[in-house]
Amino acid sequence: MAASAGNNVAGRGKTVPEILALAFGAVYLLVGIVGFFITGFDDFFAHNTEEKLLFFEINGMHNVVHILIGVAGLVLGRTLSGARTYGWLLAVGYGAAFIYGLFATGQEWDFLSLNWADNILHIATALVGLVIALMPVRNAIDSRR
């Protein structure tokens, strides 16, 4: 059974980039869902909500972004080429979110209600995205061994 380059072949285990994409996807999806238990569904673009998940300030729109990022990780993490694409999305998207946060934190126009903990997490996630996108892969991790 042949498969195109970068796609899973039946019986092949997962590569580290695929595992990371799936794990980050699951975590971000969970964070987005749990976030709605804190913020509820009103005033999606509220600024300075003081509603926090651990140290991270959130609002409804922030939760939606986390859910979308999570679903993307779960969908794209199924293949190596998809995981690499997800890595680039994280690197570029969260790199941009970090830059946005440098200017937006504490401002009335900050529609994501960011704080400095968010900014640190965003740059760390961008770096993880680069790892997923660029990590060399020699062998798949086979859970059957």
Rank of each mutant, 00 (worst) to 15 (best):
M1S: 14
A2C: 11
S4L: 13
A5F: 12
A5E: 11
A5I: 13
G6M: 11
N7P: 05
N8L: 15
V9I: 12
A10R: 09
R12H: 12
G13M: 09
T15P: 02
V16P: 04
P17N: 04
P17G: 00
P17D: 01
E18H: 11
I19M: 02
L20M: 07
A21H: 08
A21F: 10
L22E: 14
A23Q: 06
G25R: 09
G25E: 00
G25Y: 04
V27Q: 14
V27S: 15
V27R: 13
V27A: 15
L29A: 12
L29V: 03
L30D: 11
L30Q: 10
V31K: 10
V31T: 13
G32E: 05
G32H: 05
I33E: 11
V34I: 15
G35D: 11
F36P: 00
F36N: 01
F37N: 15
T39N: 15
G40K: 09
G40P: 06
F41D: 12
F41C: 10
F41W: 14
D43Q: 13
A46E: 07
N48E: 13
T49F: 11
T49P: 01
E50P: 02
E51L: 13
L53Y: 05
L54E: 07
F55M: 15
I58T: 04
N59V: 02
G60Y: 15
G60L: 14
G60N: 10
M61Y: 11
H62G: 08
I67H: 11
I69E: 02
G70I: 04
V71A: 09
L74T: 03
L74I: 05
V75H: 07
V75P: 00
R78Q: 14
T79N: 09
L80H: 05
S81Y: 15
A83T: 03
Y86H: 07
Y86F: 14
G87R: 06
G87C: 07
G87P: 11
W88V: 03
L90P: 07
L90T: 07
A91S: 08
A91T: 05
V92I: 14
G93C: 03
G93M: 01
G93D: 12
Y94F: 15
Y94R: 12
Y94S: 09
G95C: 03
G95N: 07
G95L: 01
G95D: 10
F98N: 09
I99L: 12
Y100M: 02
Y100R: 05
G101L: 01
G101N: 04
L102H: 14
G106R: 11
G106Q: 09
Q107M: 14
D110K: 07
D110N: 06
D110E: 01
F111I: 03
F111T: 00
L112H: 03
S113Q: 02
S113M: 06
L114W: 02
A117C: 00
N119G: 08
I120K: 06
I120S: 08
H122W: 04
I123N: 03
A124Y: 10
A124R: 05
A124C: 06
T125W: 02
A126W: 01
A126T: 02
A126Y: 01
L127V: 12
V128D: 03
V128R: 06
L130G: 10
L130E: 04
L130T: 01
I132R: 00
L134D: 09
L134P: 01
L134W: 08
M135G: 05
V137A: 03
R138C: 00
R138P: 08
N139L: 03
I141P: 00
I141Y: 03
R144Q: 01
R144V: 14
R144L: 05
R145D: 14
